[in-house]
Computed example of a mutant assay.
Amino acid sequence: MTLTTATQPESSKKMDAKCAAEENLPSSEMDLLAKLEAANKLIESDAKSLNSLHSTHSRKNSDTSQISLTSTGNSNAEEDIWTQWATILSDWEGALKRKNPCVRDLVRRGIPHHFRAIVWQQLCGASDTDKKQYADYIKATSACEKVIRRDIARTYPEVDFFKEKDGPGQEALFNVIKAYSLHDREVGYCQGSGFIVGLLLMQMPEEEAFAVLVQIMQQHRMRDMFKPS
Rank of each mutant, 00 (worst) to 15 (best):
Q133S: 06
Q219H: 09
V147F: 06
A95G: 05
K99D: 12
T141E: 14
K60E: 02
R221N: 13
K139Y: 00
E23Q: 11
A135S: 13
S90F: 03
K41H: 03
S55I: 00
L25P: 00
I118D: 09
A17M: 08
Q203L: 15
T83Y: 06
Y180H: 14
K41Y: 04
D16M: 08
M225Y: 10
W120V: 08
M204Q: 07
K97I: 04
F195E: 10
L213K: 05
D130M: 05
T56W: 04
G194A: 11
V214W: 04
D16P: 00
F174E: 06
I67M: 01
I216R: 00
E171C: 12
G194L: 08
S28F: 10
Q122C: 13
E186H: 07
L106N: 07
H57F: 03
R98T: 15
K18W: 14
V107T: 07
A38N: 11
G94T: 06
Q203M: 11
S62E: 11
A126P: 04
D128G: 00
A34D: 13
K13W: 02
D160W: 03
P157F: 12
M204N: 04
L199F: 05
L36S: 10
H113I: 11
E93R: 11
F161W: 10
S90I: 03
E22H: 08
A209L: 12
D151G: 07
E93I: 05
R104T: 12
N61P: 00
E22S: 11
Q170I: 06
H114W: 07
M1I: 09
G194Y: 03
V147C: 11
H220M: 14
A117F: 04
E22A: 06
C102Q: 14
V187W: 02
I43G: 06
